[in-house]
Amino acid sequence: MTRTARLLTLLLAVLLLGAVGTGAVLYAADRSGERDREQAGGPEVRSGSVSLSPPDRRLVLRNLAWGPHRDELATVPADRPDGPRTASGVKCLRFHAAAGTGICLQAEHGALDDTYRAVVLDAQLHEVRRFPAAGIPTRSRVSPSGHLVAWTVFVSGDSYAGTDFSTRTTIVDTRGWAVQDNLETFTIIKDGKPYRAADVNVWGVTFADDGRFYVTVATGGRTYLAQGDLAARTLTTLHPNVECPSLSPDGTRIAYKKRVDGASPDAPWRLYVLDLRTMTENATAEQRNIDDQALWSDDATLVYSLPGDYGADLWTTPADGSGTPQPLTRSALAPAYLG
């Protein structure tokens, strides 16, 4: 064999061994990924088209399953919430949608620190308008008509559990882009009288219509459910010990997290429902700590997040206190029902 032939043979052997090695690594990685998915019990996630005006009833959520589509908005049929997900390519930290309008709170990672923005999306998830957000996103909501969007951020701190935090809540009217940049500037009516204090915080909007909403007002170490009037720029307190309210579709009840006596300071909240007509409150069957703004999937059922292996899982429980909590879908956050 000539020297050239020996060199060619050696080169072919090296290339063959490299190909075998690469194939083995890729196969092992693929099998490892399959095992990870099997162990997590996570859903299949694939790219596709996502609409906020679907022809059928669907659930849109932030996908937390590991893989290339983590943190993207994804959709599943509402009656098959743990089925395969269609991922949109649009990433959001917090999200909500109604009537073909979405609000997506995003992070922009810089060399030294992160900045945040609130992006209004149309029905095809195209950006319509963006606004700077003053801190870490925590809550978002869209009015039933799709005309109003709201979001809350932490200006300082990153948890509601203690007292060392400050929030800012904004409402934007998408019809003319009027911005209410800070609801703390609204007049607060407490115990029937105007109230002012330096320690006021406002968070967690839930809309009744395009003029009326509910929100948490905190002052003096206590929290209150307040009814907001957008035109009058007022917040009127209604009931104590209410955080992150969520109005039922029929407009008669508020689901919320309530601080309960005897609970750990790090896990103080339980999920309650308030009847707005009688102002009576009832505990749900969910006895774990709830740090979320619950969502009504219908007039009888609440959806909320709990910590999970990959960030958070979604659970459901009846709003009337009956039954037992049930898992809805894993590796998901920030749900919205559409259609």
Results as ranks from 00 to 15, higher is better:
G228V: 09
D292L: 02
Q293M: 13
S322V: 06
V242G: 03
V205L: 08
G83A: 14
N289G: 07
A231W: 02
F165R: 11
A294I: 08
V242K: 03
G204A: 10
A332Y: 08
F186H: 09
H239Q: 12
T22F: 12
M1E: 07
R35A: 12
H147Q: 15
D309T: 14
R330K: 15
D82E: 15
L295D: 04
H109R: 13
S88H: 09
R70D: 05
I171E: 05
L225A: 11
L230F: 03
R233I: 11
L11R: 11
R175Y: 04
I189P: 10
T237F: 11
Y337D: 00
L333Y: 10
S159R: 13
M1G: 14
L271K: 03
N201G: 05
L271I: 08
T170K: 05
R31K: 11
R288A: 15
P132S: 12
S166M: 06
G21D: 04
R85Y: 11
L274F: 06
I189D: 11
V149Y: 01
Y116V: 06
G251W: 07
V76A: 07
T138K: 04
F186G: 01
F186S: 08
V128K: 13
T223S: 15
A40H: 10
S32F: 10
M1Y: 05
R62L: 10
R288N: 12
P268T: 08
A78P: 06
D181Q: 05
T101C: 08
A283R: 14
R330Q: 08
D164K: 10
A19N: 11
A24P: 01
T115P: 00
D191P: 03
R58G: 00
T169W: 05
Q106W: 12
T75C: 04
I136Y: 05
P318Q: 07
V120L: 07
V149I: 10
K193Q: 11
N182R: 05
D56K: 15
A178V: 09
L125A: 04
A13N: 03
V260T: 10
P327V: 08
P137L: 13
Q293L: 09
K190W: 02
T170L: 01
A232R: 13
V120R: 01
F186V: 04
A65V: 12
V25C: 07
R35Y: 06
E286I: 00
P194W: 12
W269C: 02
F213E: 02
D261C: 00
T169A: 02
R31Y: 02
G228I: 09
Q106C: 07
D122L: 02
K190P: 00
G67T: 05
D261S: 11
T219Y: 08
V202E: 06
C104L: 10
Y256G: 06
A40S: 12
L73I: 04
L15K: 04
S248I: 03
D313Y: 08
A263K: 04
V90Q: 14
L121D: 02
D113Y: 14
